[in-house]
Design a binder for these strands. Structure first.
Lengths: 207, 207
DNA sequence: CTATAATGCGAGTGATCACTCGCTTTTTCT
DNA sequence: AGAAAAAGCGAGTGATCACTCGCATTATAG
């Protein structure tokens, strides 16, 4: 039945002490993922770095996957925080201003923790439970779609779903490749150029 | 020293018999990757499916990674075949026709073996040697860049490198998401719409 | 202060799996 | 034909690692 490892906490951390343990474990997992990569990340090592025993680890996380999932969730939450905020700010702006802000925030989001982002994107086999990424994507699509819908009159006649798909894919890809390919040598000037160009393309497309 | 597993064949297959063995191993690897995913792909299993002993496997492939790398290479070669051909065909076409063909071929390329493509993209930890993907990307960029360079007069004033980066990222992302998100339920009509729209966006951007 | 619950411990276990090695069979060479 | 090289075999090995279990320590309740 349960083909993929469970992801939910076995037990809820109630006391302050145990909450600290849980935090330390998630933090340690993120650190090891960045430092050593997914392959070299073992539960014993995580516990060690967190300054906690393996036994305690398994009090709160039923599997290694659960730990990684927690790291992913934490990272996604940070990103979604940014994105949601921006989409609210953007609601009353015309398409050109809005798109520019969205492109900017996409790049910012990827720059929150580029190393972690890279490991999560490249080294973690997305299998079973770990595909919370879908929910994440769906939310972004929904939010962007709602904005585009509300700004229909400024735009040429387009299928909103198709436009959402293309815009989100494009902006995400440019941001992703910008931050990951060009690694850390990313001048502010370069970023501005890419934001300008991408904005130009997307806005040109929408109207 | 050698931190990542070697990828080169330990021995070259000379006789017809051994060439068949090598082929069977690569083919079996691909099949198991698709059927069971990366995690459940073990060398013993690969040998079994290939109808070959583990010992023989290690005659030709020094590591499990080498086998997976061979599968990736084979798949990339198929894609690059398509892409190179298309870029030759396209050399004498105006930007709008050219972009349309490129978008089309990008989607076709992803549809060669979508299931394998998905596994390679989502489940294989890209670590060390397996980053032949970079060479692959570089070639595509070079080819596209050359085309754009040659068609400069039809285009507005753009930095060719930036334009290449944005165009390739965009087209790749749309193709990737189209084939992988919308899985197998991909009507020809939908594909045409997406090709139309993406082409419109990119062409609009270039001139 | 005592009882009970919550948290923490870490040596040990069982399973998996990449890979080796000594040997046999098949092909090629002369 | 015989010798040598190439290909093939698969039981076994050693290492890794996720996870358990019985017990110790610390916190809360009564």
């Amino acid at each position: 039945m349960a083909r993929t490892p469970p992801t939910k906490p076995r037990k809820n951390a109630l006391q302050a002490r145990s909450r600290a343990t849980v935090d330390a474990l998630v933090e340690a997992t993120a650190r090891i993922l960045v430092r050593d990569g997914f392959e070299k990340t073992s539960t014993n090592r995580i516990a060690e770095i967190a300054g906690v025993s393996v036994g305690s680890l398994y009090q709160y996380f039923p599997s290694k996957e659960a730990l990684v999932a927690a790291v992913i969730d934490r990272h996604n939450d940070e990103i979604m925080g940014l994105v949601r905020t921006t989409l609210v700010e953007v609601a009353d702006l015309p398409v050109d201003k809005a798109v520019r802000k969205l492109v900017t925030v996409a790049i910012e989001a990827h720059r929150i923790n580029p190393k972690l982002h890279r490991v999560l994107a490249e080294q973690i086999p997305r299998t079973g439970q770990l595909a919370d990424v879908e929910a994440f994507n769906r939310e972004i699509h929904t939010l962007v779609r709602a904005y585009l819908e509300s700004r229909r009159k400024e735009m040429r006649k387009v299928d909103v779903d198709v436009a959402t798909f293309i815009c989100v894919s494009t902006i995400e890809a440019v941001a992703h490749n910008t931050v990951l390919d060009h690694a850390e040598v990313l001048s502010e000037k370069m970023v501005r150029t890419l934001v300008d160009e991408t904005t130009k393309m997307v806005v040109g497309y929408l109207r």
